[in-house]
Nucleic acid binder design. Sequence first.
DNA 1: TCTGGGGTCCTAGGGCGA
DNA 2: TCTGTCGCCCTAGGACCC
Length: 418
Amino acid sequence: MFALVDCNNFFASCERVFRPDLNNKPIVVLSNNDGCVIARSNESKALGIPMGAPAFKYKPLFDKNKVHVFSSNFALYGDMSHRVMSMLSEYTPDIEIYSIDESFLKLEGFNHLDLLDYGRTIKKKIDKGTGIPISIGIAPTKALSKVANRIAKKFPKETGGVYMIKNDEQRIKALKWLKIEDVWGIGRKHAKRLKAKKVNTAFDFINLSDEWVKSNMSIVGLRLKKDLEGKPTLDFEKIQPKKNIATTRTFEGMLKNYEDIKERITTFAVHCAEKLRKQNSHCAEITIFILTNRHRKELKQYYKSIKLKIEPTSSSIILSKHAARGLSVIFRNGYNYKKAGVIISKFTPEGEKQFNLFSEENPKHIALMQTIDKLNKSIGSNKLKLASQDLGRKWKMKQEKLSPRYTTNLKEVIIVKI
DNA sequence: TCTGGGGTCCTAGGGCGA
DNA sequence: TCTGTCGCCCTAGGACCC
């Protein structure tokens, strides 16, 4: 059996843990740059605020309904997530952390236990230990545990936030209830195509032929179908090393000037290099892309990316040079650029780097990077920069409603006065 | 004026060597 | 030497997730 544990409205719940005065009040959390809504409390959902709502368009509604608006505080969410996950791992040796707010637990060899009861115990402990409310779905396969979780979340009063699909009768009932667009693994495009075929529920979906599903939705769709039929097909994912590291940003305004974009691209490359050194590897490929504002249809549109094969490196200096070189190839004058990014890939562990006679990397870089990382760690992140970066801090991200980093910064912990 | 960021996997199709 | 075919590898693009 599998259990899917999901934190309810996770980012909003994290904000609430340290602000109990916000219980039962509407909360939204905004994306980087305070652009759009990425998390909502139940009260905000009830007000009709959709996921991804642009903040500027919904400001009147926020004001009118006294919605509490927060900038995203990933230091806080990451730490809270870690607390929840480490508590969960006390309940099974097999845990797959699926995302910042979700985990699958494998409950093999737990037959002697009443699993529903076990789930309720877990929920109670997490609530008490972290203050984060969770929902738990238990079922014979991963996809079905997602379905069970949805039921637990949708009917908190009836289920107490924990639901288990025990037999075929319950499975069929659940699949008939679940709308096709809400099935895990069915996105917007597939949902549209399936509805046109009169497939409106998960139950309709499992009644399609395997052949149709395979040819229209690839092996991925077929695996999902088998899993929903109760035949375990999606297994635990082993923790894989990362395949890509990306730093991409939408600019606050629009940029036309090559030098401005170069400065941004350089900074993105440095961020990527820092993440790369944290996982002790080198990369042999770098992709740079730029694009205009696709929401402004009246403006000329442009999108271009370039992938460069490079000698393996983790040096901020080398990577930012390559990034600038790539940009010079794809940049075109006369466009209003809105977003850009750097993605690095083809990783090799540090020790496996081959010696190259024509190496352009100065061996002093290694020591220099170590020193930069060490200093940035001790004096605060990213205070030490390359000359080509945004030294004037012109590009500070808009975060007007940032909450304190209660759990990760000593200066921001809550002070209790007695 | 203002619309996120960071990932993964799969497939089709082209290049290329045997 | 020329041509067809097969399989492998790579890439771009599309789909999905949170």
